[in-house]
Each structure stands twice: as C-alpha cells, then as structure tokens.
Write a protein that binds this DNA or RNA. Sequence first.
DNA 1: TTGTAAGCGTTATCAT
DNA 2: ATGATAACGCTTACAA
Lengths: 341, 341
Amino acid sequence: MEQFKTQKRKRKGRVTMTTVGRMAGVSQVTVSRALSEPDKVSPETLKRIQDTIEQTGFVPNAIAGALASQRSNLVTALVPSLTNIVYSSFMKTFNDSMKEANYQILLSETGFNPADEQEAIAAHLSRRPDAVLLTGIHHSSQTRRILLGADIPVVEVWDITDSPIDMCVGFSHVEAGRSVADYVHNKGYETAATVTANDERAHRRRDAFTSRLKSIGASPVIAHDCVGPASIESGRNALSDLVDRQGFRGGVVFCSSDVLAHGVIIEAQARKIRMPDQMAIIGFGDQEFAAHLEPALTTVRVDRERLGEEAAEAILARMRDEPIARTVIDIGFQLMVRASA
Amino acid sequence: MEQFKTQKRKRKGRVTMTTVGRMAGVSQVTVSRALSEPDKVSPETLKRIQDTIEQTGFVPNAIAGALASQRSNLVTALVPSLTNIVYSSFMKTFNDSMKEANYQILLSETGFNPADEQEAIAAHLSRRPDAVLLTGIHHSSQTRRILLGADIPVVEVWDITDSPIDMCVGFSHVEAGRSVADYVHNKGYETAATVTANDERAHRRRDAFTSRLKSIGASPVIAHDCVGPASIESGRNALSDLVDRQGFRGGVVFCSSDVLAHGVIIEAQARKIRMPDQMAIIGFGDQEFAAHLEPALTTVRVDRERLGEEAAEAILARMRDEPIARTVIDIGFQLMVRASA
DNA sequence: TTGTAAGCGTTATCAT
DNA sequence: ATGATAACGCTTACAA
C-alpha cells in the first residue's frame, strides 16, 4: 500500500505543549495552564488535555520552563566524597527534605584543592540552581564572589563559622577534639595516641585533642596519620605502626572516624590486646555499627540526619522570604560513652 | 511603543553574554563563540572578552544553552539507595567517567515501588538528560515507553537481562546464588542458613542458593529475612534468631551482604562460636573491609568500579554514534575464598 | 475560560 | 572575523 507522510515533522517528532495543544484543540498556553493551574481550565478541556498527554507520553520540558520562569527547581550540592557515609547520610535527609518541596539535587564531589572547587561551583551555577549547599567553610575569595553574585541561598555545612557566605549548619571540630581530650583526661588515661585520616577537618580535631592534652599537662600524644581515606585496613595498619614502630604500649587511641576505630579494634583483638583496660578506643561519627561492635565503641555523635534537615529548612525558609532567625546553626555533638573507652 | 518596552519587567542586573558583549564592544554571538570556539575569534577580541568575563564574574547560562542546542550535558541516574556503598561505589566511577566527558550527573533515589520509579523517571526526563542510568531491569511498561520515547541512551545496571530497554551492564544474581551453593556443597557443609536483607535482588540470590542446594539433595536451608536494610545490628540479630529460635546449630551462613556477614561474625564471636569450623560465613559484595575482618570474609566479588566505567563507556559510545559491539555486558562475579568459609 | 505576544539567554544558520 | 536573526519550548502579562 502507498504510505504518505501526512505530517511534516520538525526534529524527531518531539512532543511539546504545542503539539499536545493542537491535538486537544487548544492553544499551547492552555496546556501549560492545565499542568500548573488545573483549576483555571474548564473540566472538559482539562480532561481532553490530560488524555492527550497520557496518550502521547508527553513530558514537559523543564529546561524551557526554567528559562522562562527563571526558576530551575534545582539545588546543587558539593560534598568531599560520594562514597563516604558521613556525607551521604546528611545528603540523604537533605535530599528528602528538598524533594518534598519539589526540588531536585545535583550532586558533585569536590576535589581536595580549592581550584577544583571553584571550577565545580561555576559548573553548578551555570545550571542556575535555586540554591547551593557546600561542605565546609573554606572557600577562595573568587568562589565567594561568584556565589554572592548568583544571589541565591547558600548553606555551608559540616563545619561552623561566624562569617558564612550566607548560612551555615554544622559544629565545631575544634570543640569536638577538645571534648574528647577532656574526657580522656578525666578518665585518667596515662598515654594517648591518635589515628587520623587525610582530611582537613580530621586534622583540626586531632590538633585540638593533642594541644588540649598538652595544655593539661599530659604526656605527649603519639600520632599516626593515614595516607589515604579511612578504612578498616588503614585502621589495622595504624595500630600496627603505633605498637610495632612507635612504641605505643597501651592507653587510649583517638581515631578520626569510626571506621578507623573499627580497624584498630580488629587489630587489637588479633593481637590479643584487652580492651578497654589495656587499650581504650575512641571513634568519631557514631555510625550505625559503632554501638554493635565488641567492645561497643565510644565515639562522638553528630546528628547528620538533623544536619541535612536543618540545611534544607534553612534554604527553604530563605526561599519563602521568611525572616531568618539564625544564619548560623550549631547542631553540636555528643560524646557517646560505651565499652571501648 | 518602544518606550514602553524598555520599562518592561526590570530584573536584577544579571550578567549575560549580551552585557559582556556590550562591555567588550562586540555582539553577544561573539561572546558565545569566544567561549565555545575561541579559535574563531581574533586574539585581541578574545582577550577583551575574557577580561570582561573575569571582571564581571559572568557564568554562562547552561539552561539557555541547552534549550538552544538541544543538548543538556546532563545524565541522570536512579539508584535504590544513596547511602548504600554498593551503589555509591559504582556511581563514583560512573560519575568520574562521565565528568571526564563533560557531563554532570543528576542522581536520585528510587523508592521501592515501580510507581515511584515512574514518577522519578518522568521528573528526570523533564530535565532533558542526554542519557539515563537505571539500577535494575524491572520497569513498568509505561516507564519503558516514555524512556524509549525520549530517544536517548539508557543503560540498566547491577543486573542482567537479554532484553534491555537499550543497554545493560551487570551480572546474574541467580548464577551468583548458585555458585555459592555449589561451593558450599563441595566444601561439604552439612547444614546451611541464609541471612537476607529486604531487597529484591538479594532475594533472588537467596532463592537460587536454596533451590540449588535442594536440587543437590542437601538438607533444607534455614532462612532469616531481615525487615529493614542491611546493617551490623541486623546481622547480629539474625544470627541470634537463627541460633536461639530457629535451632541453627552450626554449618554455613550465606549472607546477602558483607555488612550482614560482618554482624554475624561479631555475634558469633560474642557467643564464642569458632569460625569457620563450628560456623562458616559467606558474604556478598567484597567490600573494602571483607578481607580485613577476623576471620577474613569469604564473599562474592563484583567489580563495581568496572561496572560504573563500563556503563559510562556504553553511554559515551552510543553518543558518539559508534557501532555498539554488545548491548549487554556481563561483568560476572568471583568467589573470594578466605578464612571464614 | 482561553488566547496572543513578548520574553528567557543561549546556539545555529546564514550573511557580510 | 563578526554580526543579524531565527529558533529552542516554555511562563508571564495582558487581552478577548
């Protein structure tokens, strides 16, 4: 049979509001309205439009929508690592809260150096997000500048400062390190060691811990700094190093993360070191497993779920043009004393 | 008339290519070219434009660019969970590979039910991504339809099928379950139990494991199914249940993830059960810690890093309009035999 | 209730 | 090498 192309197709026959409208016998605007303000469209028209949409599988073009309305319904976020549960746990609640308000999250990993961050932020801003979440408070001045120029809510998390770019939700790493030092001192541990991942904030906790102990007059702290990221393996290696090469003979070990502490515990067990009397272990983060290790891990709890929610709430409040009560929210931390120290 | 136009809708002084051009004494188009094809612009003009960009902190509007060019440089991905290392590890390499090709990733969590997925996919497609990654191979027919209608590369990962929507990178969960069963049988373990998280693919591995053992003529497998997601805690509870309530007296335990297996090991240790002779443990996933537990965990390794890379490569090849060698890539799995079983 | 028209800030296509 | 002009597919006045 002869087949005629009855339709002249521009572009692979993409379905737009215009085509939907044509099929439903209305104008493009009416289709737009049917989607965003259904009340303002007569029931019959609405029905016809909805049927056509269903039938064609039409999906509105949010890009065009964003360009026209100057709102992208996009929020971008930068985290140091996509695979680290510490960050993904607050991103999860942040994501959930924002999704509820109909925002999508564009997530990227920040490299370690500020130049990378700047590039990443520019890439994000080119998508014209309605808000931005950043992990950490140290940013280049150029970064701050273009962020301020974007004129959108910005929330910095997982650390705290008096002078945020816009808003800030986090806690003091220095205070956390000091608190652990005080606990250790009050418990009467004679000697202390640190096991620290390669992470700027972990370093700050370690330094605060060490200098607090020093100022209290305790004996010098032995330090093992891991080369890479935290892992069970590097925790085990760390204890081996402390014991075999640095002459650590017992006392307390403050680890920069629960994962490292876990590795230390496994290694100590393998070496038949009794915990906590011969060796006490303190972690950081209070991850899910911390309470369920043997011995249960003493650690510092940060409410990451709440952090994500507060960050979302801060952004949403600003978007609603609400008066902002506090632009800096300290969610604090809590020492979870368990069997290991 | 023209006087009115000028007064229309005055917005905040956003910097656009037009304003940059005005400042640099060229037209908007030339600014666009300076950014995308610098060679086609005279060195002096280029310099002037670049200076102006630097000075104004201009960030190109990718939304407008995407609308005009019909390419978003966006790829969207759907994973079951943002916090599960299993998924984040292949998303990391996928992300890295795509970023290298100048794509950004929009990531979302899929709920458990297919209706959620459909909604999520529609939301993603509205951003007009240049490609889509999905976790899993089971999708509603409407989902398949709008995905096909989008006419972009689609890759389904972490499972395998002969009839992918477009392309597929993964492995057979059924084969994995069977392999473990064969190993268990050859090792001569008399009794077996399973500890399984609430996850469709984990169920398939469990069922394949159980029915293979049955067909070989082994004694029935005792099963503990966790309510929530995998965790150390649920692993410990699982073993308690198996031993205290289901009368499991030893043999081998096949866990649906290394995390659960870890919990089982901790509980077994706490109960002074000797491993592997009294009780052998097998995990799934070969996560970083598996090799470093005591006893080191026997588990099934899936090369998640490679999976992410292959998925990216598949998408990129299709975008380059290269002939596609295989639309289904089986990356397989490998039994890592260690001390625990 | 529905439609018309003017953007939104780019890229693509031709001219010059 | 540079520019004018038309898309791109929507939203937002404003008109009917």
